[in-house]
């Protein structure tokens, strides 16, 4: 249903935003020596108790009011498991949640990365109140960005200001 890993990242990170996170870290790391591609998203949102955590990878469960289908987590879990990869989710109420999917890098069913640049850009400029730290290490590229550094330089100017958006789009294009 979600064709690219960058879509999964967007989806899970938006769960974090809706869980009230103020700090979200995203890492996409390929390790050729280990033969793995890992995707992890960690947040400091409201977290979940053990029962909710157990239910959340059920595609027919959702924490959202009035909504009975919560597909996002189960789709990423399914994508990892279909490739004989691993999926882990840890959460502590009041502290946050971590989601990690590890794919065998050469498995034919590993979804393509997709447009990671767009995912990073759209997350940070449409959620200016959230601090995002991004790490990407794959395809011969090694990139890190923390929106705290960006906001410190901007000194009160919004990260969603049009000229900042254009700058960051070009910056990510150059580095990713």
């Amino acid at each position: 249903m979600l064709a690219e890993l960058s879509d999964h990242v967007m989806d899970i990170a938006m769960n974090s935003v809706r869980a009230g996170a103020r700090n979200i870290s995203i890492a996409i790391i390929a390790q050729r020596d280990k033969g793995t591609l890992s995707v992890s998203i960690g947040d400091d949102g409201i977290g979940m108790d053990e029962e909710t955590l157990r239910k959340v990878s059920d595609p027919f469960y959702s924490t959202k009011a009035g909504k009975t289908v919560g597909l996002g987590v189960s789709l990423l879990k399914g994508a990892a498991e279909i490739c004989e990869g691993e999926f882990q989710m840890r959460s502590v109420p009041g502290q946050g949640t971590e989601v990690e999917a590890v794919f065998p890098i050469d498995h034919p069913d590993v979804p393509p990365l997709g447009n990671v640049k767009d995912t990073f850009l759209l997350l940070c400029v449409t959620n200016p109140e959230v601090r995002f730290s991004f790490r990407f290490s794959a395809d011969g590229k090694d990139f890190e960005m923390d929106t705290k550094q960006v906001n410190d330089i901007l000194g009160g100017l919004s990260i969603s200001h049009p000229e900042v958006v254009t700058f960051l789009s070009n910056y990510l294009e150059e580095h990713l």
């Binding site: 249903m1 979600l2 879509d7 967007m10 989806d11 938006m14 919560g70 597909l71 996002g72 789709l75 767009d118 995912t119 850009l121 759209l122 400029v125 449409t126 049009p162 000229e163 958006v165 254009t166 789009s169």
Partner: peptide, 23 residues
């Protein structure tokens, strides 16, 4: 940008809005 929105192409729509507003 829920799961079904993303699956239906909402990311491209969001990108178009962000780029057009910036441009």
């Amino acid at each position: 940008m829920g799961t079904s929105g993303i699956a239906s192409g909402a990311r491209g729509v969001l990108k178009a809005f962000v780029e057009e507003i910036a441009a």
